[in-house]
Design a protein around this nucleic acid. Structure first.
Length: 322
DNA sequence: AAACTACACAACCGCAATGGT
DNA sequence: TACCATTGCGGTTGTGTAGTT
């Protein structure tokens, strides 16, 4: 039995909004304010679900929305912000985990909890009057196409920005160093989540036999009840997370990035990172795959297949230096 | 003029976070 | 603490329109 849908399918209008619906919604919000959207839609006499009302208001009816084409300045800002915030891959790696990874050099597997996201709302927040939806659409239609066109004519990446390439999908790909290519690291990707979500960081390191299994790709999580139970520390994602950008950043970083990081610092202060101790004993006592637990039924073969896809191919070439 | 294609953007969907009870 | 409704977000789809053949 699943959760009841937030928007009931029956009895509600869908599709394009009519002028009358717009008028009803706008006048109701003008009189009573935003919020309580499902209630609002009923009270306003709209046969729309609350989510639809909210979206219509935020993306179209709000009085402070800026109409018209994206200006050159706005476009440049979007591109810059997207480089900073867009389609990032975050990997949660505690310091101890990085040490463990370095010990696993030579093996085929590096497991990590990865997070993919693009903060359209953050980008929109820096463009007054523009909505996240608008910017997202603009990126997906105009800018991505342009990036593709540039890539096809072999435009070299700018040295002054990042040591990475923007691919068609907007995913940032690190340049391949000889070391990185040699390392052949495989990264286990988990489901995309938001940056504030909690992730699991290993507190212990794998026993030698499991390391061997990892190397041979034999460790299957279907039996993880027996083989993969163990201590898992939960910390806030941002605290245990290293943003890949930092691995190939432009050194000092832009003002925008610094500003963004400041914001994050404020946001994250409430959840100070728990230090994760690491020592040899932990390495010996490790009995679990660090990023798997009871509900994370993962099949390494399936994941390896996933990682062979273009979308995730860049993960194989990341060179994690401790 | 009709058919087809590309484009732009509004709207939907599913998921996760959050807050109230 | 668990449950549920609400809110917010990002990815995707649908659709109207302009341009091209």
């Amino acid at each position: 039995m699943g959760r009841s849908p937030s928007c009931p399918k029956e009895g509600l209008n869908k599709g394009a909004w009519t002028a009358l619906e717009d008028k009803l919604l706008a006048s109701y919000i003008k009189a009573h304010g935003e919020g309580k959207w499902s209630d609002l839609s009923r009270r306003a006499g709209l046969k729309r679900c609350g989510k639809s009302c909210r979206l219509r208001w935020l993306n179209y009816l709000r009085p402070d929305i800026k109409r018209g084409n994206i200006s050159r300045d706005e476009e440049e800002l979007i591109i810059r912000l997207h480089n900073l915030l867009g389609n990032r891959l975050l990997i949660s790696l505690s310091p101890s985990f990085l040490q463990w990874e370095s010990k696993l050099r030579g093996t085929e597997f590096l497991t990590a909890h990865c997070v993919r996201l693009c903060r359209w709302s953050l980008i929109a927040g820096r463009l007054p009057g523009r909505t996240d939806n608008e910017i997202k659409n603009y990126w997906n239609t105009v800018l991505r196409k342009r990036a593709k066109a540039q890539a096809s004519i072999g435009t070299p990446p700018s040295k002054s920005t990042h040591k990475m390439l923007s691919t068609e999908s907007g995913v940032c790909e690190p340049l391949r160093s000889p070391q990185a290519t040699k390392a052949k690291i495989k990264v286990i990707l988990t489901k995309a989540t938001r940056s504030s979500s909690k992730v699991r960081i290993p507190t212990q390191l794998p026993a030698a036999q499991h390391t061997d299994k990892l190397r041979d790709g034999q460790l299957n999580s279907t039996n993880n009840n027996q083989e993969m139970s163990g201590d898992i520390a939960t910390v806030e994602a941002h605290n245990g997370t290293q943003v890949l950008d930092s691995l190939y950043s432009d050194g000092g970083g832009s003002d925008l990035l610094n500003e963004q990081l400041k914001e994050r610092d404020v946001e994250f202060e409430e959840n100070p990172m728990q230090p994760l101790a690491f020592d040899e004993a932990m390495f010996k006592n490790w009995t679990v795959n660090p990023c798997l637990n009871g509900n994370d039924a993962m099949d390494f073969d399936s994941l390896a297949f996933l990682l062979e896809t273009d979308e995730y191919s860049f993960c194989r070439n990341i060179n994690f230096q401790t």
